[in-house]
């Protein structure tokens, strides 16, 4: 028509060339796949496409789930399942053998129950803490008209760091020679070896977790907040509703389904705490103050002097059941939230 039609946009040409180049390389896969299609018929090709994925899922998820249950009923330290004696419920009995569940020292495997107690407290505090900070931050960001993108990025950034990096950064921050102790010396003329103190180390493990993961949950809550229609607030504004009442009577109830899902997600994640706490506390210290269930499973199975695969699997199965219950409740809540 009017435009100089014969001049091709270079990007189109470049894209085409790339396509042709890859095309030539892909012949290696394409020819056998086409032959396969002739052999099986086009209608069976979807099975070919989905096969690699299903094979990997089978090998690395479905088979292990079955094995986890099988291992939980065997004893000994042999790795291969056929070398292991069947012991029935012995592993579960050993784990659950306790004078009082509230007092880990009365249990046969007191480390397990210490880990359960630690995990329980961690889960409680981390869930409440993260929920609080994520909610407030999301509300704040939702309110800002300028700089929202910037702050959202800042708060989300830690989520992308690796647990090792987070653990090390905070270990250094809290170290004897760290910045925090520098300030404490300046202002209060005192130094605290935070990570060697039972109480302080627990506080910091929870704090670091919140610092690490808060941005993720904030983002989900923020998405929920932004899904609330604006005109509801405008209507409330016209009615002369105070901001405080708007929050309690509009925002919170409308956000509730979203918050419930976030809460369960937090519970699921918290129960599995391991990586950053392990790095931060140099393997669950001081003593066993920050030893959690996953660490117990890991150590029970993989410590060279333990290698109690059966016991570890039994603990895995118990944790798996707890997680399954939480996940199912999450699915249920998510479904309800959609309605």
């Amino acid at each position: 028509m009017s435009a100089p039609a014969s001049v091709a946009p270079p990007a189109v040409i470049r894209g085409e060339r790339l396509g042709d180049g890859l095309d030539a390389a892909m012949r290696v896969v394409e020819v056998p796949m086409a032959a396969l299609q002739r052999l099986l018929g086009a209608a069976r090709m979807p099975y070919v496409f989905i096969l690699p994925n299903m094979v990997l899922f089978t090998i690395f998820v479905f088979v292990p789930v079955g094995l986890a249950i099988a291992y939980a009923f065997t004893g000994g330290t042999n790795l291969l399942i056929w070398d292991r004696p069947y012991v029935g419920l012995e592993n579960f009995r050993a784990l659950l053998d306790c004078g009082s569940y509230l007092e880990p020292s009365t249990c046969r495997y007191n480390l397990f129950w210490t880990a359960v107690h630690n995990t329980w407290w961690y889960t409680l505090l981390n869930t409440l803490g993260t929920l609080f900070f994520a909610l407030v931050t999301a509300l704040v960001l939702n309110r800002l008209t300028r700089g929202r993108g910037f702050f959202r990025a800042v708060f989300f950034y830690p989520v992308l760091l690796s647990p090792v990096v987070v653990g090390l950064i905070w270990q250094w921050f809290l170290a004897r020679e760290g910045l925090l102790n520098g300030f404490l010396t300046d202002w209060f003329d005192t130094r605290i070896i935070f990570l060697l103190d039972v109480g302080w180390s627990r506080v910091w493990v929870v704090y670091v977790s919140i610092w690490f993961h808060m941005g993720f949950f904030m983002l989900i809550i923020l998405a929920g907040l932004q899904a609330i229609p604006r005109d509801i607030y405008e209507a409330a504004e016209i009615d002369g509703t105070s901001q405080w009442r708007q929050f309690w009577c509009l925002t919170l109830p409308l956000l509730m389904p979203n918050l419930l899902v976030v809460t369960v997600l937090l519970l699921i994640r918290s129960v599995q705490v391991f990586d950053e706490a392990w790095v931060l506390t140099n393997g669950g210290g001081p003593g066993t103050a920050n030893t959690f269930i996953v660490q117990f499973i890991y150590q029970t199975a993989f410590s060279p002097d333990l290698r109690l695969y059966g016991l570890a699997s039994a603990a895995s199965v118990l944790m798996g059941i707890a997680l399954l219950a939480l996940t199912l409740s999450q699915l249920w809540l998510a479904k309800k939230a959609q309605v």
Partner: peptide, 28 residues
């Protein structure tokens, strides 16, 4: 069924199956 099966693996975190998953790795 396959889609449901794939989605269901979301519910199985590594921390639950790490011991047998390692056995599989050793077996392979």
């Amino acid at each position: 069924a396959m889609f449901a099966l794939i989605l269901s693996t979301m519910m199985i975190p590594l921390s639950v199956i790490m011991v047998p998953a390692f056995m599989v790795i050793v077996g392979l």
